[in-house]
């Protein structure tokens, strides 16, 4: 797979570290335990489009949100995580 880093252009997947689901949002401290369990443990495993965190570890150290099809590895969009968080 090749990922288009917004800063470094397209690079091989070996430069990136995978983290997983980028749709989860960290709950507030006083959120019910169920919300935390959901955030920490429960993950969908979609066969199809998915938003995931990837870290450009061997490059610019940017955390990215990569939207891709988990079946075909087709990538629809790549944004920086900070841009997504701030949106």
């Amino acid at each position: 797979m090749r990922i288009h880093c917004p800063y470094c252009c397209t690079r091989g997947v070996e430069e990136f570290t995978y983290r997983g689901d980028a749709t989860v949002r960290r709950p507030d401290l006083d959120a019910p335990e169920a919300a935390w369990v959901d955030y920490v443990y429960l993950r969908d495993n979609p066969a199809g489009p998915h938003a995931e965190y990837w870290y450009h570890a061997a490059g610019c150290h940017s955390w990215l949100v990569v939207r891709r099809d988990t079946r075909t590895h087709e990538i629809f969009s790549v944004q920086t995580a900070s841009e997504v968080s701030e949106a």
Binding site: R26, Y53, Y55, H61, W63, T80, A81, S82, S85
Partner: peptide
């Protein structure tokens, strides 16, 4: 640290 900064608390 980068995750905490960029993904959780970019501000």
């Amino acid at each position: 640290l980068e995750f905490c900064h960029q993904c959780l608390w970019p501000g």
